[in-house]
Nucleic acid binder design. Structure first.
Lengths: 208, 208
DNA sequence: GTTACTTTGTGAAATCATTCACAAGCACCC
DNA sequence: GGGTGCTTGTGAATGATTTCACAAAGTAAC
């Protein structure tokens, strides 16, 4: 298949959210225009995004909410649960461990790791924090596919290397430093201070 | 000034980080190539990004680390501190309140608000959680410019409307729903479940 | 069955972002 | 002071993404 832009995948993910909401409200069908207005985009964009994967709509009518939902779930790989480990049980790691949104969408936290003896042994939302030294063996036996990295910037790269060596497939990085991984591993970063700086820029250049 | 792409602003922010690191290591100058390799981009990209704002380098030599740092800080609006309020003192709000990275970069938490009587009165990193009913009057008197919104999706839009009415300039939204604001207010969203879904897509389409 | 209306799917056009490629400027050395 | 070696700044070219615009395909009503 042709390469799909990240911005497209991000929007598909949003569409899926709206569809689920629509489904909960008992709606059967939805038009590209309705989907667009929810997501702050245009109907043409919605149709183009979907067209990369097939034609799921009925002309004159729109899309079946339930059909499109399941097609999107399939496209996004949400048909099955994913096993996720959290590395770092500090404030952010702990908040992530207890975040409802992950479980709801099929991301199951199967392990949490830290180095701090104070944290090791704590139960966070049913999962016990384990020693970071156990990380590799656990990863092998659990076969976790995704890691959430919530550790100080200084140790982010070495821990990334360990995760990669242990066969992780994807990493979501919350440290404020860019990480380097081999090309078969997917990495994304969430950098909150950087988001604030973008807001700062916008505030300063409001009228420009 | 010509409109600057968000991707450019994001990279400027990253460059600033590397410059600060370089400065700490005692380096005087840096080339576009060095800056690029840190940020996973190309030297041409770095030079193009900077060229939107002026020409800060010396041919044959590169950029003065300290000069470029201060120019970038100025461009990004980081020359002065920003007053930030956090709305929602749950797990995420509390983690944000205690996150070091904000203060380091001049974002000062001046207020935290919640509705839960259990949370109200708690001190998070020196700031006391206050009743959400006090939010508007506080905002007016404190003149806070930025809000971090860490509340359940159902109440995110109404709270956004209140923040906008109270004169907030920018919002960083952690709720999993897109928010609508008038055009004079800047909004950005950090949606962690969505980031995981992008990873899920990547894992499923690894070889495609 | 025909007409009127709606909405999709998609090439083509337009816009936006990145990369290329190279002249121009500066440092350093002899 | 002239030559050599780097590195910047920037138009032009390329590539990517979004928007446009419209034929095709469906519904609904009579």
């Amino acid at each position: 298949m042709k390469h799909i832009a990240e911005s497209t995948v991000r929007r598909l993910s949003l569409y899926l959210r709206f569809l689920e909401e629509f489904e909960a409200h008992g709606h059967q069908t939805i038009s590209s225009g309705e989907l667009a207005s929810q997501g702050g985009t245009t109907s043409a964009q919605v149709r183009k995004d979907l067209s990369f994967f097939g034609s799921f709509g009925k002309r004159g009518l729109g899309y079946s909410v339930s059909d499109l939902s399941s097609r999107l779930r399939e496209i996004l790989g949400l048909g099955r649960p994913w096993k996720v480990v959290i590395v770092g049980a500090g404030k952010i790691g702990a908040a992530l461990a207890q975040y409802r949104g992950f479980r709801e969408r099929g991301f199951r936290i199967v392990g949490i790791y830290d180095v701090d003896p104070q944290s090791i042994g704590l139960a966070l939302d049913g999962v016990t924090v384990r020693d970071q030294r156990d990380m590799e063996t656990d990863l092998m036996s659990l076969n976790a596919e995704i890691a959430l990295l919530a550790v100080p910037a200084e140790v982010a790269q070495p821990l990334t290397d360990r995760l990669v060596a242990a066969g992780i497939g994807a990493i979501l990085n919350f440290a404020s430093t860019p990480l380097h991984v081999p090309s078969h591993v997917t990495i994304r970063s969430v950098n909150m201070a950087l988001e604030l700086e973008i807001l700062s820029y916008a505030l300063v250049n409001r009228d420009a």
